[in-house]
Design a protein around this nucleic acid. Sequence first.
DNA 1: TCATGTGAAGAGCTTCACAGCA
DNA 2: TGCTGTGAAGCTCTTCACATGA
Lengths: 209, 209
Amino acid sequence: MVHKYAPKSVVRRLPVYLRILDNLILNDVEIISSKELSEETGFSAEQIRKDLAFFGAFGTRGSGYNTIFLREKILKIIGLDEQTNITVIGAGHLGIALIRYNVQKNPYVNVVAAFDIDASLVGQRILDVEINDISKLKETVKKYDVKVAIMTVPAEHAQSVVEKVIESGINVIFNFAPVKLRVPENIHVHNVDLSIELQSLIYYATANR
Amino acid sequence: MVHKYAPKSVVRRLPVYLRILDNLILNDVEIISSKELSEETGFSAEQIRKDLAFFGAFGTRGSGYNTIFLREKILKIIGLDEQTNITVIGAGHLGIALIRYNVQKNPYVNVVAAFDIDASLVGQRILDVEINDISKLKETVKKYDVKVAIMTVPAEHAQSVVEKVIESGINVIFNFAPVKLRVPENIHVHNVDLSIELQSLIYYATANR
DNA sequence: TCATGTGAAGAGCTTCACAGCA
DNA sequence: TGCTGTGAAGCTCTTCACATGA
């Protein structure tokens, strides 16, 4: 287990290629050039070639990339070649939205359960995903080998929840709570703070610059 | 109207400083050093000083930054010194979550209305925010001088919706639909694609590297 | 003395330009 | 010929190291 990751910027773009390849394959397209991928993604063709070349020579000079072959390669690289079990912690509107979206539209993950502390939610189901009490988290993580936790809990509970998540054995966390989580170095936290992103956008809405 | 923006990376961090300053001021803290801000944010102290120094010399050597003064400066820089009117297009679970969060927790924006094409939603209210038919968009944008649209519509409708949004006069868009929107150069689109982000995270969950 | 403000160095990522190969 | 793969150059952002000034 050597920790040499690909550049973050590359990793972020891989699933974009994947989505396009899925569509192309659905439409029986067998070959795609970096130029065409560029048009679909908005990334430059050189960048796409560099991204893919980082992992190996997947294309054919003069023609392009075989869609099915490239898709398989990207799936392997990301680790999506087998379904990944995930869980959603916090079953508010955002949590529900994420459960629904991932169950219905994201074929690569499997939402095994949701968790909340609100007793009135416990026992309810969102599209077959049961909401459990947070005390059951560790048990579920062990049972299903859950790899990723999506946290959509209020800011004031986020630190105590993340500690439970780590204690359960999960080490990749997708956090929507608007706080800086304090976690050990080996835990990978990806923060999305929607109101921060909205506020920074407003910078570009102001006229006088 | 000169288009010379601050570095994107800096703009993204400004609202983070703002949130911490809001908290400090609430607790009657008057002075904060870049070192302390570093501990709160996880950004390096040098980076914080560089970020702030880009816009001027806001600190006092030997002591730090005055919280109230710095907050005012950042508000002015981002353009949050006056409330910004925004709208949410697509009133599914994600749209509702964003309306609720921004109404209740984001003091800097004002959600003037939501829009959807689903007739069964039109007329309903989420915390006083009325859901209207999308045909009323332009009228609302003009009436309230709406600056930002949050789009949480299904992928297949996103391109036609964004065209209506632009037509209405909005030029800053926060897009959650998982597609590349084709827009004129002067339109600022910020994409957040939650399933792409989740998929790229799984790269870091895979053990063998 | 202590923390800011800032040139210079460094790291990371993107674009350029073209060699290499089907 | 046409598109991939890739060193080199360029750009952006971060970190370093220290001069500056309350």
